[in-house]
């Protein structure tokens, strides 16, 4: 008897600022939708643990998509994208997420993303609070400079290995070897977009001085960061959450920057607490 996962994959075509994207997403569960964004230079397999979590999918509809140019979501089909350098902007990123949510007819989903997905969650809470029930920025901060580097696509080095091993110690040493190496494996697959993603992460994303304008009564913000994250260390997230009126910060012990893929059972403990807070506030 074949062992099938309950997770289903589909494609949907959307228009974002004139760019035609055929977007791949994985989905499982029923109830309140949670839209899940992977980290920079990666894809939706990072959410494999959550997608098959029977406890959470009983009451939540988990949708983990590949951002355009990542995983099975192609670059735009209506543009000669190979003639332009890819640099993701906050505006285009947010418009993509909203267009996808609308195409799937989601009713004010919870948005959760990690790293550059966490940073865009903060942007969504600020600029589009009525589109989302709540946001859960994971490993996020108001500003995250320092990772927009040429090394990610240097032609004299093996870019796949540079990206994968360059993010290796963003993970905690306690996380299981299998899960850390799977995350490494995912990171060998996105070298060409990693730097362009990090344009958003380290350059275009800058909410310094703006966090006080986030209205958590309309869109609650529950931030979570692992103690082994050197890129967005716990104090950076805590400082960000403190500036958001009503913002919540949860510190995750003994885990790093890719909590959902490096150690899902531990991440789930904290995620359940975040979802409990969302339920209490919405």
């Amino acid at each position: 008897m074949a062992k099938h996962s309950p997770v289903i994959g589909r494609y949907v075509t959307i228009d974002v600022d004139g760019y035609e994207y055929k977007v791949f997403y994985l989905r499982n569960g029923s109830g309140t939708p949670i839209l899940c964004q992977h980290t920079a230079g990666c894809h939706n397999h990072q959410w494999r643990g959550l997608l098959e979590d029977e406890h959470i999918t009983k009451t939540y509809d988990i949708i983990a998509y590949d951002l355009a140019r990542h995983g099975k979501s192609d670059p735009p089909h209506n543009r000669e994208w190979w003639k332009e350098e890819y640099t993701l902007t906050a505006s285009h990123y947010m418009n993509f997420i909203i267009a996808l949510s609308d195409a799937l007819e989601l009713d004010r989903p919870i948005f959760m993303g990690s790293s550059f997905g966490g940073n865009v969650a903060l942007q969504l809470a600020l600029y589009h609070p009525d589109k989302f029930r709540a946001v859960i920025p994971v490993e996020a901060a108001e500003h995250a400079p320092g990772f927009f580097l040429d090394w990610w696509r240097h032609p004299h080095a093996n870019a796949a290995q540079v990206c994968a091993s360059g993010v290796w110690d963003l993970m905690a040493p306690q996380s299981p070897d299998m899960d850390r190496w799977l995350t490494w494996h995912y990171y060998t697959q996105g070298a060409e977009v990693f730097k362009g993603d990090l344009f958003f992460y380290s350059v275009d994303h800058d909410l310094r001085g703006k966090l006080g304008n986030i209205d958590t009564k309309r869109c609650p913000v529950i931030m979570m960061t692992g103690t082994y994250d050197f890129l967005t260390p716990p104090e950076a997230t805590e400082n960000t959450a403190r500036q958001i009126p009503g913002g919540i910060y949860i510190e995750m012990e003994d885990i790093g920057h890719f909590p959902m893929s490096e150690n899902y059972p531990l991440f789930a403990v904290y995620l359940n607490e975040a979802l409990r807070i969302v339920e209490a506030r919405t």
């Binding site: 320092g146 090394w151 290796w168 110690d169 963003l170 040493p173 890129l231």
Partner: peptide, 25 residues
């Protein structure tokens, strides 16, 4: 817990021909 972490947040300095380090990362 790693060379990136310690160079970003602690006193580790990485110097010399970093391209060769990246080629063997």
């Amino acid at each position: 817990h790693g060379i990136w972490a310690a160079s970003f947040r602690r006193d580790l300095k990485i110097e010399g021909n970093i391209l060769i380090m990246m080629q063997n990362l």
